[in-house]
Computed example of a mutant assay.
Amino acid sequence: MITHSLLQPQVQAATIDDAPPVWRFDHVSVSMGADHALRTLFEGVMGLETGFRPPFPFSGRWLYEGEQAVVHAIDDASLSAEAGALRFNHVAFASTQSASKVITQLQRTALQFKVARIPADNIAQIFVQLPGGFVVELDVPDDTGGPASHVYSATQGAPAAGDF
């Protein structure tokens, strides 16, 4: 005779290492020649507000929806200020998964990536270039302690498609 317990699926508790990482949308990054088009849409129409930005060595602004900086805008003198030109840079996601684990996973793939660090923070930014030049930033706690493969400067923001 089959008992009720034998009919139930056998479920084993997943360990933390087995659990898939949880990623959430963090922000989009754009470069701008002037901020009037940016401000018209993101601030004027959408109601985003300029807020805190870490001390990157290049100029820009972060626009917030509540507590979340959802648009990172970088000043770019190569874009037309007169026209208020904008260029899409990347989309970013964040996770509590460690940088070392994400880097190990990426090293098992054919994807090109660069690692940068947010100034005055313990966050590693892992920029991954997908085919076609689309760049995705993965923001994770930095547990590596190693050197960055991308260093910010007054003239160099986040890695772009041509930087890989």
Score class of each variant (00 low, 15 high):
Thr3Met: 02
Thr3Arg: 05
His4Arg: 09
Leu6Ile: 12
Leu7Cys: 09
Gln8Asp: 06
Pro9Leu: 11
Gln10Phe: 14
Gln10Glu: 09
Gln10Asp: 07
Val11Tyr: 03
Val11Asp: 08
Ala13Leu: 15
Ile16Gln: 14
Ile16Arg: 08
Asp18Cys: 04
Pro20Glu: 13
Val28Glu: 04
Val30Tyr: 06
Val30Ser: 01
Asp35Ala: 06
Ala37His: 03
Leu38Cys: 04
Leu41Gly: 02
Phe42Leu: 13
Gly44Glu: 10
Met46Gln: 11
Thr50Asp: 10
Phe52Tyr: 10
Pro54Tyr: 00
Pro54Ala: 05
Pro55Trp: 00
Arg61Ala: 10
Trp62Pro: 06
Trp62Thr: 12
Trp62Lys: 08
Val70Met: 09
Ile74Leu: 06
Asp75Met: 01
Ala77Asp: 15
Ser78Gly: 07
Ser78Asp: 15
Gly84Lys: 04
Gly84Ile: 09
Asn89Asp: 13
Val91Phe: 15
Val91Trp: 11
Val91Ile: 15
Ala92Ile: 15
Ser95Cys: 07
Thr96Pro: 05
Ala99Phe: 05
Ala99Ser: 14
Lys101Gly: 09
Val102Phe: 07
Gln105Cys: 12
Gln105Asn: 15
Leu106Thr: 09
Gln107Ser: 09
Arg108Lys: 14
Thr109Gly: 01
Thr109Cys: 02
Leu111Pro: 03
Leu111Trp: 03
Gln112Thr: 14
Gln112Trp: 02
Val115Asp: 01
Val115Leu: 02
Val115Pro: 01
Ile118Phe: 04
Asn122Phe: 02
Ile126His: 01
Phe127Arg: 02
Leu130Ala: 14
Pro131Ala: 11
Phe134Asp: 08
Val135Tyr: 03
Glu137Val: 10
Leu138Asp: 10
Asp139Cys: 11
Asp139Asn: 15
Val140Ser: 05
Val140Asn: 07
Asp142Ala: 10
Gly145Tyr: 05
Gly145His: 06
Pro147Cys: 08
Ala148Gly: 03
Ser149Tyr: 04
Tyr152Asn: 05
Tyr152Gln: 06
Ser153Tyr: 02
Ala154Cys: 04
Thr155Glu: 12
Ala160Asn: 06
Ala160Gln: 15
Gly162Thr: 12
